Amino acid sequence: MIEIPLRRSGYGTVRLAESRLWETYGSIGLLSTGRGLAPWPYARWDRAARRSLTRADVTVPGWLVHLHRARGGVLPSFLLVVPCPTRGDLAADLAALAAVPAARVREELEQWFPQGIPAEVRPLYADPRTRLAELCDVLPRYRRAALAPYEASLRVATEEDILLRARILATRGPERLLGSLRGLRLSRHGDVLRLHGAGTPGRTAVADVSRLVLVPLVFGAGAPYAATGPDGTTAVAYRAEGAAALLGEARPSGKRDTGGEPGPGDRLEILLGRSRAGVVRGLVAPTTTSDLAAALGLAPSTVSEHLAALVAAGVVRRRREGVRVLYELDGPGVALLRHMDDRRRVNAPDT
Rank of each mutant, 00 (worst) to 15 (best):
L154T: 08
H189W: 02
S210C: 09
P140I: 10
D208E: 14
A223H: 05
P201G: 07
G242H: 08
A235G: 05
G263W: 13
A250D: 05
L193G: 05
L195C: 13
V192E: 09
S210T: 15
D137F: 01
P216F: 07
V192N: 03
S187V: 03
A207K: 02
L193V: 03
A205P: 00
T258I: 08
R143C: 05
A133R: 13
H196N: 06
S180W: 06
E151V: 09
G199M: 09
A146R: 09
R239W: 10
L195V: 14
G173A: 09
A240T: 07
A170E: 15
G183W: 09
A244E: 15
L217E: 12
S153Q: 15
D191L: 03
A205D: 01
A170C: 07
A221K: 12
A152P: 00
G199H: 04
S153F: 02
D137K: 08
R165A: 08
E241Y: 10
V209A: 10
A145I: 02
K255N: 04
A157M: 04
V206I: 03
I168Q: 06
G179F: 04
S187R: 15
R144P: 00
L246M: 03
D191P: 00
L247T: 08
D127M: 08
V138Y: 02
G260I: 03
S253N: 05
P216D: 08
R165H: 12
C136P: 01
P216E: 07
D127A: 15
P230K: 09
G254I: 03
R129H: 02
R211K: 01
D161P: 10
A170Q: 13
K255H: 12
A237Y: 03
T204Q: 14
I168H: 07
G254E: 01
P149D: 11
R251P: 06
A227K: 01
A237W: 08
T228I: 14
A146M: 11
R144H: 12
D257N: 12
C136T: 13
T130S: 11
A133G: 13
S210D: 11
P216G: 04
R129M: 03
D231P: 05
L193E: 04
R185A: 13
